[in-house]
Amino acid sequence: MRLLGLVVLLVLGLGLETTVSLYLPAVPDLLLVAVALEALFYGPRQGAVIGLLYGLIEDIYLGRYIGLNALVKTLVGYGIGWGENRIYRDNLLVPVLVLVTATLAANLLWLLVALLVGWSLPPAGVIWRQVLWQAGLNSVAALVVYPAAWRAAGRP
């Protein structure tokens, strides 16, 4: 059941991400939202595994630099999961702050790895604008799904 939920989340996330972005000023990373919340409720190992799988599927979808998103999401999933027992999750600011941090970290990592694998990057201004927009969109998405994630994780 949980596995089915994760698959649905993957398909929905990727599907929405690739279509809704047509109408938004930036591309939200809904898979990152899923990975971050998974890590927040289930810990670093679960976060890293889901990050690896979601990232890999995303990479396959993109068709090039396979492993780039997988690497980034694995590390972010692990990092957020590491804070699982250190964060009071019963505050709505938590998903917002977690996603802002996760988005900034993921993009920073992505830029570093992208440089390592030879990706030619756009100008810094464009990157910053995209990252800030994405942080906002991801936070909003996290706020929307946070109550459901809370209930799914069996929290009171």
Binding site: R64, G67, L68, A70, L71, T74, L75, L116, V117, W119
Partner: peptide, 12 residues
């Protein structure tokens, strides 16, 4: 992680 990095590089 290293494998992913190499894979990404190989699939440019």
């Amino acid at each position: 992680l290293v494998g992913l990095l190499l894979l990404a590089r190989a699939t440019a």
